[in-house]
């Protein structure tokens, strides 16, 4: 769906998405990195379970939720990609412990 512009100075950033090794580029948001990998599905709706993906890319729509390093419901468009991040899809509602 998306193709990266060629950037000779791009520095790779390694992370995992759904347990698979993946890479993005320094400066990517997590959402941009996921989209660049070819995924349009980053979460499953807390209400219907439907697959959803990043939409507004500016922190408003909450469609891009993922779990990052075991913290659920992160807005992936608002988080800068960092080396070694463990990123998984947000499935349903966030768990809380009482």
């Amino acid at each position: 769906m998306f193709r990266r512009l060629h950037d000779p100075h791009a520095r790779l950033v390694l992370f995992t998405f759904e347990g698979q090794p993946a890479h993005g580029v320094e400066g990517d948001s997590v959402a941009a990195a996921i989209l660049a990998l070819g995924h349009s599905h980053c979460r499953e709706s807390a209400i219907s379970g439907a697959a959803r993906g990043p939409y507004c890319l500016m922190g408003v729509c909450f469609e891009c939720l993922v779990s990052i390093d075991d913290v659920a419901n992160r807005q992936s468009c608002m988080v800068r990609l960092r080396e070694g991040m463990v990123i998984t899809r947000q499935r349903g509602q966030r768990e809380v412990t009482t």
């Binding site: 807390a46 909450f62 509602q93 009482t98």
Partner: peptide, 21 residues
């Protein structure tokens, strides 16, 4: 707040969890 798994099964006068979490 963000949607979380249901933990509050009674409404409180100042706090309630919606059916959507």
């Amino acid at each position: 707040t963000e949607r979380v798994v249901s933990f509050l099964h009674h409404p409180v006068s100042t706090i309630r969890q919606t059916d959507e979490g």
